[in-house]
Design a protein around this nucleic acid. Structure first.
Length: 430
RNA sequence: GCGGCCGUGGCGAAGUGGUUAACGCACCGGAUUGUGGCUCCGGCAUGCGUGGGUUCGAUCCCCACCGGUCGCCCCA
């Protein structure tokens, strides 16, 4: 019984909900087209090593959240937990650095899998929309990617948004900062939480992100990455901020924003919802620059930047801000057939109507006319076509416009043309 | 992985240690031989997440497990 339910942390997206997904996807794709990004579809799973190297061994994702399995050939495979590693692997594999149009601007719409305890806004199968730009280290690209993400939310009507950005600097800056962090926190090592004691050695940057130790006095005086940026990194960050300002995009700099994945450097950003009642989880999207990741995955040194955006969280945010997604539930026509002859004729008639671009459905329960009309009403049919014995005798159909209640007799062989006229006329009059 | 709360028909929701498990919505049928609403009548859980235990007897008590939910960690 219970094994016949959707696995923990997964959900079925039923038709009513799926309509919203379609709307959102259409909007994203339209925006991507305007920013000249093209879609890429990579496999649902990869060799485990792609994520170990791409996402980073020290990350929570790799350490405890991956769906890893062995296939019949003994290969270790993993359901993708995030999008960037797969896209970069594909970029390297297909040598896209040699493609004519550089940089390569890609987007994807794909399910991700993470083995976690489910809660509001956190699923084991989640869906992300994301983009990646490979082949440019122009800060204008960083700004463009952030702008694209903000456009997605804003064009859907969201307003309670907060954009937070930071710079993690280049390798030299990070090393300098790392040393400073280790020097700073080592004296307090025994006062920090267990995770942070480990982080002190593996990735001291992430101590700044710790919620457990956030009130520790040493946190306040911790060296900021922003004080360790070298000239190049500082200028880079300044340009990104300047471009955002030029576009009128509000942001907040948070020196403690470090992001969970190992591959980030320079620009890191997060977009959060500030809507009431959004729950404990507020991050809608996160991303950043990952120069060096291509080399990690065996390709030539190619700069890159991208973000991932949770669709479930986006829909939650729309809900929290009471934004209704327009869904067209109306049905052009519903056919009411009574009698065996009419039943037979309706099969052919519906076929013709559909081939001519008009929607039509009918009753298949053998119900009486009244019940069929009820069904037509429930399905929000604009027109009901009535085909009974009387109509069959005269080779015509009765067409009733539900909104007005008007009913007309139409010769059977003119039904399609009549409906086309009525339906197009109705649209242009609205 | 840790903690709180929860688990009764398609949905919402009463309920009690002992054989009719309320009610509302939805759905189906009838009153209405071919027309959407309303009204009225009728139908709709051999079952109370699963498995054990306590008991003469459990949906109701206990335990475990599963699932949901909210929060922690972390993230989308």
């Amino acid at each position: 019984m219970s094994s016949m339910k959707a696995p923990r942390g997964t959900v079925d997206i039923l038709p009513e909900e799926a309509a919203k997904w379609q709307y959102v996807e259409t909007k994203m794709k339209d925006i991507c087209s305007r920013y000249h990004f093209r879609e890429i579809r990579t496999p649902l799973f990869e060799h485990t090593e792609v994520f170990q190297r791409g996402v980073g061994d020290s990350t929570d994702i790799v350490q405890k959240e991956m769906y890893t399995f062995e296939d019949r050939g003994g290969r270790s495979l993993t359901l993708r937990p995030e999008g960037t590693a797969s896209v970069v692997r594909s970029f390297v594999e297909h040598k896209m650095h040699g493609n004519p149009g550089q940089p390569v601007k890609l987007y994807y719409f794909a399910p991700m899998f993470r083995y976690e305890r489910p809660q509001k806004g956190r699923m084991r199968q989640l869906n992300q929309f994301g983009v990646e730009v490979l082949g440019s280290s122009d800060p204008a690209v960083d700004a463009e990617v952030i702008d694209l993400a903000m456009s997605c939310y804003q064009e859907l009507g969201l307003t309670s948004l907060k954009l937070v950005i930071n710079s993690l600097g280049d390798h030299e800056s990070r090393e300098s900062h790392r040393k400073a962090l280790v020097d700073h926190f080592t004296p307090y090592k025994h006062e920090l939480c267990g995770d942070c004691q480990t982080r002190l050695e593996q990735n001291p940057l992430r101590i700044l992100d710790c919620k457990t130790d956030k009130d520790h006095p040493a946190m306040e005086t911790a060296p900021s990455i922003l004080d360790h940026l070298n000239a190049y990194s500082e200028e880079y960050f300044a340009k990104v901020k300047n471009y955002l300002t030029l576009m009128g995009i509000d942001f907040e700099v948070d020196a403690n924003l470090v992001r969970g994945l190992d591959y980030y450097n320079h620009t890191a950003f997060e977009i959060m919802s500030e809507a009431d009642g959004f729950g404990a989880i507020t991050t809608l999207a996160g991303g950043g620059r990952y120069n060096g990741l291509t080399e990690e995955l065996g390709g030539p040194n190619t700069p890159g930047i991208g973000f991932g955006m949770g669709i479930e969280r986006l829909l939650m945010a729309l809900d929290a801000e009471n934004i209704d997604i327009p869904t067209d539930n109306e049905l052009d026509c519903f056919l009411v057939a009574v009698g065996e002859e009419a039943n037979k004729a309706s099969v052919k008639l519906m076929h013709d109507i559909r081939r001519n671009g008009i929607q039509i459905d009918r009753d298949y329960q053998g119900r009486k006319m009244k019940a069929q009309f009820k069904a037509a009403d429930r399905n929000l049919a604009k027109f009901v076509l009535i085909l009974g014995e009387n109509e069959m005798d005269k080779q015509l159909i009765n067409v009733k416009e539900m909104k007005t209640g008007n009913q007309e007799e139409v010769p059977l062989d003119q039904a399609v043309a009549y409906l086309q006229d009525k339906l197009s006329g109705g649209k242009s009059n609205d």
